[in-house]
């Protein structure tokens, strides 16, 4: 009798510990974060997020006039992507969604993103489309001038003489504050983890591999 109880207890304990290990390793679905959306790719073609179904996606928000965070994030994503095998890279998409579609036209975005990796996907679109994507991912962005921060002081120390109105118009590009979260999305388009550039690359890679193998 005692032997049976001990065996049952051992089996129960083993089952529980297996469950705990499995539960720890399975990334939860973050319901309410993400979903399907329409945007414009860097070739100027309309694209649905569902187009990336079957791929593990790492999605980030940013803009090309960003000096610190966005280039740093894309450099981090380059290291992350470079840590995947060629086969894993084929099953993964790194997507950078601009929050400044007026300035970040598809062609401009393509050149900017391509500096980091030609495989990276840049998404632009109308302001309405971008705002919808931002809301889907519970992200945020604000134009700094809206926050009453004098962007002319941030942007330059010396007045610049403009050769023509075209250049002057270009210089009015805005600066933004924005969400810096990296969204890890599975092959079904479900958000499974929120990461940051502070996440050790090796740790992030393991999560991507886990979703690839699901």
């Amino acid at each position: 009798m005692l032997n049976k109880l001990a065996t049952l207890a051992f089996i129960s304990l083993f089952s529980c510990s297996s469950f705990i290990v499995t539960a720890e390793q399975t990334l939860p679905v973050l319901s309410g974060v993400g979903g399907d959306f329409s945007a414009m790719d860097t070739n100027g073609e309309a694209v649905e997020f569902n187009h990336y179904a079957g791929k593990v996606v790492v999605l980030a928000f940013g803009y090309t006039n960003c000096a610190d965070i966005c280039p740093f994030t894309l450099g981090y994503l380059k290291r992350l992507y470079g840590g995947l095998s060629a086969n894993e890279q084929q099953k993964t998409r790194i997507i950078f969604v601009t929050i400044d579609p007026e300035y970040d036209t598809p062609g401009h975005l393509k050149s900017f993103i391509g500096h980091f990796n030609k495989d990276f996907v840049g998404l632009s679109g109308s302001q309405e489309q971008i705002d919808y994507i931002v809301s889907l991912y519970q992200a945020e962005y604000n134009r700094l001038s809206v926050l009453n921060i004098p962007t002319q002081n941030i942007r330059r120390v010396n007045p610049k003489l403009f050769a023509d109105d075209e250049q002057a118009k270009e210089d009015n590009a805005s600066l933004y504050s924005h969400t810096v979260t990296l969204y890890l999305i599975d092959k079904q388009g479900l958000t499974r983890s929120l990461e940051y550039t502070g996440t050790p690359v090796e740790q992030f890679i393991k999560k991507i591999q886990q979703l690839i193998n699901e």
Binding site: I154, S177, H178
Partner: peptide, 19 residues
């Protein structure tokens, strides 16, 4: 180029830059 000292601060997952 023109150069300034800035500080990026992360608040509630959002980056904000100040001069």
């Amino acid at each position: 180029g023109a150069v300034m000292l800035h500080k990026t601060e992360i608040q509630s997952g959002k980056a904000r830059m100040t001069h």
